[in-house]
Design a protein around this nucleic acid. Structure first.
Lengths: 143, 143
DNA sequence: CTTTATTCCTATCGGATTAATAGGAATTAA
DNA sequence: TTAATTCCTATTAATCCGATAGGAATAAAG
């Protein structure tokens, strides 16, 4: 039996690790996918698709061809985690009806204001969001 | 494209709603599955399996046969949410390496203490857990 | 003692998602 | 011209979710 079904996806985990790796470099010199993938033990091809996503969403720049690679576009302290999480993992809320950016009404629930689950998950979303909104890439680096 | 992949499962959502329904009754008189499923707009068969799980894990009592049903075993204010979440949803942590009850080492990560993701998810787990540990079934009821 | 209504249990299923893999096109430096 | 890289699209195996099916066991009511 696999226990962790609804965990953080590997996509997000690897994406964060790659961003942290780049942030540690301290320069905006392009780093090749294979360098990151070997250093962080990530499948090269999988990481490739992740970095592509991050680039398309404005978190990374890239240089093509020989001596190409990826680099951060901003100072790590100016890169907040919340938008990264939304791109890689999707909504931060555990339930669509409490999502700020991806709101959807529940099919089964006639009234959100009296729904126990709704109000509980609202609190959870707030506390999680506070972390992701206030923390930057620079804040999570360790040496 | 379906956005909410890693949301709260319907199992958990329905389970919480059912528990809240029973808590609102205020008595320990057995309530039939079909009564709850109709009131809360939940598939009867699906709810059946959820309530069975909750019973097997000590959160509900049941009465079999005609006039049977399910009932709470404790006062709603003495039923904390954390254990319920663990039974229905699984680990509260988003990553096995920060789970208190379901710990697992990551394959890729050589050192947890220097892992950016690890330390970030530790904070998220703490803030979520604080909510689930401190809130009881009684606390999430609305009228 | 028969009927009826319920919980209990196991098995199965379609669809969706995840984590990856494959193969090559486009681009750039040497 | 060659080599090394990013870019792009498609595919896949495994797994999980949400539900459904069918009947066994149990207990109340007549």
């Amino acid at each position: 039996m696999v226990i962790f079904e609804n965990m953080l996806s590997k996509k997000t985990k690897y994406g964060l690790k790659a961003l942290a790796y780049l942030a540690k470099q301290g320069s905006n010199h392009p780093v090749q996918i294979s360098v990151i993938s070997e250093s962080e033990n990530i499948s090269r091809k999988f990481l490739e698709s992740i970095l592509l996503t991050l680039r398309k969403n404005g978190f990374l720049g890239s240089k093509k061809g020989k001596t190409g690679g990826y680099y951060l576009l901003k100072d790590p302290k100016d890169i907040k985690l919340a938008p990264i999480m939304r791109i890689l993992e999707g909504p931060i809320a555990m339930v669509p009806c409490v999502s700020l950016n991806f709101y959807e009404k529940c099919d089964d629930c006639p009234d959100e204001t009296t729904c126990s689950v709704h109000n509980l998950m609202l609190e959870v979303r707030d506390s999680t969001l506070q972390i992701f909104n206030n923390k930057s890439l620079a804040d999570i680096l360790k040496d």
